[in-house]
Computed example of a mutant assay.
Amino acid sequence: MPGASAPERHVICMKWGTKYGPEYVNRLYAMVRRHLSGDFRFVCLTDDPQGIRSEVLCLPIPPLDLPAGIPERGWTKLATFSADLHGLRGTALFLDVDVVVTGSLDDFFTQPGEFVIIHDYKRPWRVTGNSSVYRFEIGAHPDVLEYFRGHFDEIRSRFRNEQAYLSDFLHRQNKLSYWPDAWCPSFKYHSIPAWPSNYWKAPAVPPGARIVIFHGECNPPDALAGRRNRRFRHIQPATWVAEHWHE
């Protein structure tokens, strides 16, 4: 249609609590800007916008009304499925704040699928996805959040975390699909050399990687410094992190 505007694209992250400082959001924005062509809006859902760069649209996290004192299992991410997410419309690519972008993000907005997520690394025979990177149409899946709010005790008894519940819920609706395996590798499983070569070989960027996922033992500054949070699991410094994880 002549004169029609392109569909609106959003990149969304979340920051709550004190685990991650504003520098994680600022560096994530910079990486996305370097690797995503064309226009997009970068949104951070947060309880504290202080220190976040002006190019980022900071919005409050929609309330989930979770019981006080429960273990943090990522449930807060389900707020992205609000029926009205601050009036935003269009396609959203959600990224965890501690990922490292190493390649083009353009195809994440064109990959076929109604809801696309990383397939679980450790148990690929399950439907469970890793919610460090997922894409969806804003407002298209309000039932994910509505059911969660109405059945929280049942969901907690069946699912360990939000990504297990989310994957199961959308799989039952035949809406779940996965990114190509090479796009979103795990630093823990795919970058660190196998023992004992991890003592003399540095972690590498896996072939075809576009977004390297940091989960479990290391965050980007730990990887850069050659630190792991478990005894006897040595790594050499991943110097390539510094080439990407910066403003």
Rank of each mutant, 00 (worst) to 15 (best):
S167F: 07
N161P: 00
F115V: 06
F94C: 10
L170Y: 02
G139Y: 01
D96I: 10
H119I: 05
D143S: 14
G139Q: 07
R156H: 11
R126V: 10
F115P: 02
L166W: 03
T102E: 00
F148W: 10
R149N: 08
S157C: 07
Y165T: 08
D98W: 00
E154D: 14
N161L: 07
R149M: 12
N130A: 12
P142L: 07
R172G: 15
V127E: 10
W125N: 09
G129V: 03
Y134T: 01
F136Q: 04
Y147I: 11
V97W: 00
G150Y: 02
P142H: 04
D107M: 11
H171W: 12
T128P: 01
A92W: 00
H119G: 11
R158Q: 14
L166D: 04
E154I: 13
D153C: 13
W125R: 10
L105V: 08
E114M: 12
V127D: 05
S167D: 05
I138E: 01
F148G: 08
I118Y: 01
G103D: 11
G129C: 03
Y147E: 14
Y134V: 02
L93V: 04
D168R: 11
D168H: 13
Q163M: 11
G103M: 09
P142F: 04
E114A: 15
V101R: 06
Y134S: 00
V144L: 15
S167K: 06
I138D: 02
V100G: 03
V97F: 00
S157M: 09
R172Y: 03
I118W: 01
I117K: 00
E162V: 08
F152R: 13
V127C: 14
A164L: 10
R160D: 11
P124F: 06
G113S: 04
E146V: 12
H119R: 15
F115C: 06
L93Q: 02
L88K: 02
G150L: 13
S132R: 00
L105T: 05
V99R: 03
E137Q: 12
N161W: 01
K122S: 13
P124C: 10
V101N: 07
N130R: 09
G113H: 01
D153Q: 15
D143E: 15
H141L: 15
D107E: 15
N174G: 12
R160P: 01
Q163R: 01
N161V: 06
E114K: 14
T102I: 07
V99L: 07
S157P: 03
E114L: 14
A92T: 03
Y165A: 07
Y165S: 09
Y134M: 09
